[in-house]
Write a protein that binds this DNA or RNA. Structure first.
Length: 404
RNA sequence: GGGGAGAUACCGAAGUGGCCAAACGGGACGGACUGUAAAUCCGUUGGCUCCGCCUUCAGAGGUUCGAAUCCUCUUCUCCCCA
């Protein structure tokens, strides 16, 4: 189905980030029906609390959820506290260590806090469920009955299982159950729509299957394009190329600015509400200005516009004009003359004296603004009552004082 | 139950008795340049009291003047056959 030319209506704006819609006809039909009878659609989104932080990649489907919320539908947020303990096999070639109930609980509450910055979690505007609600009381045989609703052949159709078979990587038996569990969530909450990343398409389809078998109307599957990380690779916590929602404004801003120029378009598409026309207009201008705008938008919806503007100014001063940051960390060091590498290590800048030496030899260390390449320089902090300003590279700055 | 393959630095991956602190790629970091923490180029990437020394190649022993490399056992992983 071609996208309507007018992108100002909420649905097309929402679908900007969409990858698959199964199916568009059903979606239109159900939206229409909802409008008629005044019953909001139940839009499910599940997230497993396996870590403490969620990042802007997760924000893409959550923003979509918010769009639905603004259209008057009901987000059904599922905290996969049961599935988290199993671990989603998607895109992994190794098992995740299984988490304890306590760890999952801690993560779940931090997740809610973070999701709350995007979605209105107020009672009545959003339904929050934990899937331990239904999985918690199932016994082994209930589990087997659930397993009997799907077939191995069907399960093995899944891309990442196929890939792993081909690469001769292990597929653990319990991993086959993950899609079934996720699908069962849909049955339990009677979802009309489920949103997920496009690597979740298979799991979302499983929901349709199980719902049909349970005599429900199958949910519409709506997947989002995957947001690539700041380095252009798949965004993941382990790669360190993500931006956590809880990052400081400066951090968010800076990380967006470190995006490659090529990645900008996708970020605009997935994380801002600009229309395509606006986006391409912005991108035809100076890349730096485009990125500044992008960074301000992203920082803005996480921290507010005031903070975003401030972060932008700080960034400019810091990296364009080469100014020192407004707040400089301080370190108090013990008395007595010490070698420069020793100081760097003790101040916590370098993790080893060898690392410190390398920086110095490469001309990356400045003392009170002057590059110092002398590895064996003896520094006596008592000669610097105002503190010694130490800079390493462009980012690490610190003022060292004599310990009182 | 049987047979086979494997465990190397942050990650991926070479190395199969000395020239190995360990190729190469990614990442990260430093420098130059710039339009920014983009791109490109150069360099660095175990530790230390650093022109030398010390500890690394799953773990524990052993052979050897000398082992990541050979042998034994242990732990873990994968594949194939049944």
């Amino acid at each position: 189905m071609p996208r309507p030319a007018d992108t100002s209506d909420p649905l097309s704006a929402l679908l900007r980030a969409a990858s698959d819609v199964v199916t568009r006809e059903e979606l239109d039909k159900r939206l229409l029906a909802s409008e008629k009878d005044g019953k909001p659609l139940r839009v499910k989104f599940g997230i497993d609390p396996t870590f403490t932080d969620i990042h802007v990649g997760h924000a893409v489907p959550i923003r979509m959820l918010r769009n639905f919320q603004e259209m008057g539908h009901l987000p059904v947020l599922i905290l996969g506290d049961a599935t988290a303990r199993l671990g989603d096999p998607t895109g992994r070639n190794e098992q995740r260590p299984s988490l304890s109930k306590e760890e999952v609980e801690v993560n779940a509450s931090t997740y809610l806090e973070q999701i709350g910055t995007i979605l209105d979690l107020e009672e009545g505007k959003c339904e929050i469920r934990r899937n331990s609600e239904w999985f918690g009381e199932m016994d082994f045989f209930d589990g087997l009955r659930l397993a009997s609703r799907a077939t191995v052949a069907r399960m093995l159709e899944r891309d990442d299982f196929q890939k792993r078979m081909k690469d001769r990587l292990p597929i653990h038996l319990h991993e086959l159950m993950y899609p079934v569990m996720q699908g069962w969530d849909s049955v339990q909450v009677e979802a009309d729509i489920e949103i997920g990343g496009n690597d979740q398409l298979f799991n979302l389809h499983m929901g349709r299957l199980l719902q049909e078998r349970a005599g429900q109307k199958p949910q519409i599957c709506l997947t989002t394009h995957l947001l690539l990380g700041t380095d252009g690779q798949k965004m993941s916590k382990t790669c360190g190329n993500h931006i956590a929602l809880r990052s400081s404004p400066e951090d968010v801003f800076g990380k967006v600015m470190s995006l490659s120029d090529e990645a900008m378009e996708a970020w605009f598409q997935l994380l801002t509400s600009q229309t395509e026309e606006e986006t391409s207009a912005i991108l035809s201008g100076h890349p730096r200005d485009a990125k500044d705008l992008l960074a301000r938008e992203v920082t803005g919806w996480l921290h507010g516009e005031v903070e975003a503007d401030a972060a932008s100014r700080t960034f400019r001063k810091r990296f364009k004009d080469g100014d020192l940051p407004e707040e400089i960390a301080e370190a108090r060091l013990p008395a007595g003359p010490q070698t420069l590498p020793g100081i760097l290590k003790r101040a916590g800048l370098a993790s080893s004296t060898s690392e410190a030496r390398r920086w110095i030899e490469q001309g990356g260390v400045r003392l009170d603004g002057e590059v110092c390449k002398d590895v064996s320089l003896e520094v006596d902090l008592s000669l610097h009552p105002e503190g010694l300003l130490i800079q390493v590279g462009k980012r690490k700055v610190l003022r060292a004082f004599l310990k009182a």
